[in-house]
Design a binder for these strands. Sequence first.
DNA 1: ACAAAACTATACCGATCGGTATAATAGGGG
DNA 2: CCCCTATTATACCGATCGGTATAGTTTTGT
Lengths: 188, 188
Amino acid sequence: MNNQKLLLDVALKLFSERGYDGVGVQEIVDLAQVTKPTLYHYFSSKRGLLDALLRKGFMPFLGTLKAAAQYEGDLTRSLEKVIRLYFNFAKEQPDFYRMQLGMHFAPYQSDAYTAVALYGAEQTKLIEALFRAAEKDHGNMRGRAAQYGASFMGMLNTYINLAINHQIELDDSLVYKVLHQFMHGIFS
Amino acid sequence: MNNQKLLLDVALKLFSERGYDGVGVQEIVDLAQVTKPTLYHYFSSKRGLLDALLRKGFMPFLGTLKAAAQYEGDLTRSLEKVIRLYFNFAKEQPDFYRMQLGMHFAPYQSDAYTAVALYGAEQTKLIEALFRAAEKDHGNMRGRAAQYGASFMGMLNTYINLAINHQIELDDSLVYKVLHQFMHGIFS
DNA sequence: ACAAAACTATACCGATCGGTATAATAGGGG
DNA sequence: CCCCTATTATACCGATCGGTATAGTTTTGT
């Protein structure tokens, strides 16, 4: 295992547990058993380390999300794919998901937020495009793509957050429950 | 304006902009035009300052929430009251709401999270109790109070977060839109 | 074999971190 | 007026912050 990957692994673990601001560079290199110049050789700065970490964690996911969020005449089916994709993402990389989710609510001037903002925007864009594409088959949704996109992702992240806290489990049945709740509300 | 209140105001402004970890004690006292011993006289520690800030911001709100979240035979009506209450809270104290919301997603070992956790738990408890009380009139909801409580608050905070980012406005019509979406989904 | 490039260790930088010991000042009650 | 308490300033603490200058060590291409 090379030092670059080692540093990324250690940084992910520490950042997810105590946050970007809560972890010093010294602690990262100590736990990875390297020295500071090694870190700065690979990542130039602490922020650079964070950027690399986010790129590595998001890159494959965003590609599959783009595919899953295509509208093919059945909004329910597309949303189900998207939910499943997010659940898998959160289950396979819980530390990363926790870190990223926290950063999404970090102060707007912080490194944590600015680093994660473009990935958040990319996801929002894809989901909104899905709702906008579905508008032509669902007239009553017209003009609310942004609103539905935001609330869909909000609901998704709410459930994932519960799962990360071990209060629920992201199993197959929850996919349908979340989907049903979003489509038809809590009364049916 | 006494120094104690001045320090709380300055801390709220800075914490909401750059986070608890992102702001040093020195900067707080400089902006409040006092010195460090003054801060430590009133609040004993940086964490004590944060605790006082949260107590001051949450105390009146939690009382009114408790009243609004009583089930009186009409879940829709109670939820409407709750939504309206949260919207007003977020509109009247946007800086505080932003700060508190960010802390709710902060790392679980951080001061920020541990300080805000009990207030989050209190809100969850009240909202869940509302859904549980409504179960007797809505059999299909049985056993899902925790889930509905969490997703209701998740949706609420999603919209409030959009408003804080000036992407939507928390006006009267949004109260009904959010309520309707939660009760009946996006298809009706 | 050799030089260039990539990598890593020692030791250090100024600045800031949260926090405090000591003492001066202010205000109120007797 | 005097004492007591509350409040505030000066000056400082050791530790840690992110980052780097320098030099040594490996690895790589030729």
